[in-house]
Amino acid sequence: MKNGVKSASHGGKHYELCLKEFKFAFTSTMAYILISCAICYITGYGRSGEDMAVFGGLPLWVLFGVVGPWILMVLLTVVYSIFIMKGDEE
């Protein structure tokens, strides 16, 4: 059997499935970028480094604006790819 991701056609249900996956990935990507920038803007930009609160060695703006969203994004990617992303490959 020839290798590679195969299908009978590229249109119809296959296209709709790909479009659905793209919309989910694109929306979650944009949400991640906007949420991360917004939290960093609110909790980090314009603050003084001398007074910046720290938790576990991480400045709070980093914890809530970068590390938290990044880890959540990775978890979302793992869960979506392994448990949710199903379609016409079978």
Binding site: V5, K6, Y15, A25
Partner: peptide, 28 residues
């Protein structure tokens, strides 16, 4: 670390968003 945070989307946008469509088209 904020400068680097774009890496958080690599798997999602670089593989899952376009993977099925591109891999199948390229193969066929």
């Amino acid at each position: 670390l904020l400068w680097q945070a774009g890496a958080g989307v690599l798997g999602m946008i670089g593989m899952l968003a376009i993977g099925r469509r591109i891999a199948r088209f390229a193969s066929d």
